[in-house]
Amino acid sequence: MSTKVLVVDDSLMVRQQVGRALTAAGFTIVEAVDGADALEKLAATPEAALVVCDVNMPRMSGIEFLENVRRDGRPALPVVMLTTEGQPELIQKAKALGAKGWIVKPFKPELLVAAVKKLTAAAA
């Protein structure tokens, strides 16, 4: 069975781009449209091995999602932030919450795939 990755972004375009890259690399994708939806999808898909998550989203941001995931007892779940933000303070905040990576959009698919492979292999 292929490894599941939760892709969280309010943009359909970004979810499609990420999904296409990761599906081609053999991963199975679960999509969520914001942080709140991602928490529900994660509860329904506890076997998800990694999360690729936007920062600025309606209802619940990526940083708030990260805070909730850590509070809910998933301290080791790898989360990679994928965002237009490059602000050092935000990056440090995500890092402090245990994010494993930060990618500034637009992303290079091969870099994303390499990062996801590395992190899911390390977590296995």
Binding site: G86, Q87, P88
Partner: peptide, 13 residues
């Protein structure tokens, strides 16, 4: 040192 991340950058922690 405190320059913002650029587009396409990947940082691993």
């Amino acid at each position: 040192e405190d320059a913002p991340a650029a587009e396409g950058d990947l940082m691993m922690f």
